[in-house]
Computed example of a mutant assay.
Amino acid sequence: MKNTFKLSLAAILVSSAMTANAGISIVDNEEGNFSIGGNVELNFNYQDREMMDDSEFNQDGRVLIEFAGEKFTDAGYYVGVKAQPLFESTGNVALDDAYFEFGKQDSWAVRAGRYEAYDMFPVGLDVFLEYSGDTSNELYSDGSAYIYQMKEARGRGADGQIMYYQSFGNLYVELGTMLGDRSGLFSDDGMLGQKTYHGESIVSTKDSFLVRPVVAYNMGDFTVAASMETNLVNDTAVTSSGVDVGDRTGYGLTGNWATGDISVNANFAYMDAVDETNMSVGLNALYKNFGLGYIYGMNEYENKEIKGWADGDVNVSTYYASYEFTNVLAVQDFSVLLGAYYSSVDNKLDNPGSAMFEEHDDYGARIRLFYEF
Rank of each mutant, 00 (worst) to 15 (best):
A365N: 09
T277R: 13
L283K: 00
G23F: 10
I36S: 03
D361Q: 11
R212D: 00
D221G: 01
D261Y: 04
A273R: 14
A355W: 15
S344A: 15
L286I: 10
G353Y: 13
G103E: 05
F100D: 02
T19D: 13
N284E: 01
M120K: 07
L349Y: 15
L13Q: 14
Q59F: 08
S35F: 12
G308Y: 14
G80Q: 05
G297H: 13
K6E: 10
T318S: 02
P122T: 03
V316I: 11
Y320D: 01
F357D: 01
L253R: 08
D48R: 09
V316F: 05
G260K: 02
A22I: 15
N256D: 06
E41T: 13
D48W: 04
D272P: 01
G297K: 08
D54K: 07
V40D: 07
L139R: 03
E152M: 09
G69A: 02
N234Q: 11
E31C: 05
Q194G: 10
N315A: 11
F100Q: 03
E138D: 10
N267Y: 02
G157W: 09
R182E: 15
E152P: 08
F34A: 00
T135C: 14
M219H: 05
G157P: 13
M271S: 12
G353T: 09
A17T: 08
A365F: 08
S107H: 06
